[in-house]
């Protein structure tokens, strides 16, 4: 239950964090020095959020196999 709550929190916080990074970029308050770091973080957050939403290829394959 706790981990689930945490998972839920993490998606929400990840989304929030992602939005923050985008805002920083839009407001041009981001440092060029930090840009790469922030982008890497954003990319990781995106991947994380997407994985939460969407089944990965592997999983889908497994499901399809069990259906046959």
């Amino acid at each position: 239950m706790e981990t689930r709550t945490k998972e839920k929190e993490t998606y929400t916080t990840a989304l929030k964090r992602l939005q923050e990074i985008v805002n920083e970029l839009e407001e041009e308050t981001i440092d060029v020095d930090e840009l790469t770091k922030k982008l890497a973080e954003a990319q990781r957050l995106l991947a994380f959020c997407k994985k939460k939403l969407v089944k990965t290829e592997e999983e889908v394959q497994k499901i399809l196999e069990t259906m046959q």
Partner: peptide
């Protein structure tokens, strides 16, 4: 609803790209 979340992520990703490009261009 979930699809909108996906779209939102995609939009964020696009904005990230565009803004990064803009930022780099500006710099």
């Amino acid at each position: 609803h979930q699809r909108e979340q996906l779209d939102r992520l995609a939009a964020l990703a696009r904005t990230l790209q565009e803004e990064t490009r803009t930022l780099l261009h500006l710099h």
